Computed example of a mutant assay.
Amino acid sequence: MTTKLLTVTGLGKSFGGVRAVDGIDFELARGELLALIGPNGAGKSTTFNMVNGQLRADSGSIRLEGTELIGMRPREIWRLGVGRTFQIAETFSSLTAVENVQMALLSADARLWSMWTRAARHRRAEAVELLDQVGMAAQADRPCSVLAYGDVKRVELAIAMANSPKLLLMDEPTAGMAPKERNELMALTKRLVVERNMAVLFTEHSMDVVFAYADRMIVLARGRLIAEGRPAEIRDDPKVQEVYFGSGKTFEKKRAGAQRAADLGEALQ
């Protein structure tokens, strides 16, 4: 593990009388993929949005290399080197892949006032290079509206890299993708983490993706952190299995059941 990048302590958030996040602590280092998982209503999205600045915490601290993020707006946090992708890919469908990345580069350069007149010329070479890093350079001049969904997610990843992030937040990065696309996108993400020495915090419902690619995992339940560790430790944690499945079930049994369902689906095609 390399230099500690993100430090979250005592983080809390309530909505009315409901304690959505209840005093959680965790750290994230450069060069690390950290998965934030938990059943529905666990507080994952609330935690994620507090780190990004979309929600303001009621208590606690979120520090990026010592700089307090609580109270900052999302754009201010973005300018500190925090990128983000979304569950539903956020691109301009009428623009080409390279134009989408150029728009992000314009924003990184604080030149949004001129984006419509200058986007087509602004840092095109750098935009194509970012697309090349995610395997999309050959489709740089195609509108996002005609790209396959998995390719749109790659373009979104290139957009998120436009501000050379230290920390990348990925909200359900493989949602809506086929198994092959999911694995390709996460393998690409892991390669970029190593090459750029950045950190990734991601939420994900696909446990196969989480266990295959996360370096560490933190598990929330009812707003509290109930487990933290390497994938093998989390897989065997009785409290985690109880929260997800109830007694008598494990991740391995769930994976076997999912595989049988997939095999049946292929047989019926």
Rank of each mutant, 00 (worst) to 15 (best):
E65W: 05
G83Q: 02
R30G: 13
E172A: 09
H205W: 05
V243C: 12
G10C: 04
V128N: 01
L131D: 00
R196K: 15
R260H: 13
E129Q: 12
A212Y: 01
S93L: 15
K4E: 15
K166E: 12
K153I: 05
W78L: 04
V240W: 09
Y244K: 07
L188C: 05
V134Y: 00
L95E: 08
R216T: 04
I70Y: 09
A110W: 10
E252Q: 14
G10I: 08
Q259C: 07
A258S: 14
K239I: 14
F48P: 00
W78S: 13
T203E: 10
V146Q: 13
P165S: 11
R260L: 14
A178H: 14
A127V: 07
L36N: 00
R56A: 15
A262C: 09
V210C: 02
D132M: 09
S107G: 13
H205E: 09
A140V: 03
A232V: 14
L34S: 05
L80H: 09
M207C: 09
S114I: 11
A138W: 10
G81A: 07
P74S: 10
T2Q: 11
G248F: 07
L264A: 15
A57I: 03
A256Y: 07
L36I: 05
A178Y: 12
L225V: 05
L112R: 11
A267D: 15
A212S: 14
V194D: 14
P173W: 06
V98E: 04
A104D: 01
G248D: 08
N49H: 03
L34Q: 04
P39H: 02
N40E: 08
L201G: 05
K4W: 03
G38H: 01
R121N: 14
E228I: 03
T203L: 12
L5F: 02
S145L: 12
L55Q: 08
R111L: 11
N40W: 07
A140D: 02
K13N: 07
A175V: 05
L157H: 02
V51F: 06
G41T: 04
K44Y: 05
K153N: 06
F251N: 00
G81F: 00
D236Q: 15
K4T: 15
K253P: 04
H122V: 06
F92G: 01
T91Q: 09
P74L: 11
R142A: 13
A267H: 15
Q54K: 11
A221S: 14
T2G: 14
G53Y: 03
G38A: 06
E68C: 11
T3G: 12
S145E: 15
Q139I: 07
S14N: 11
M103T: 11
G31N: 05
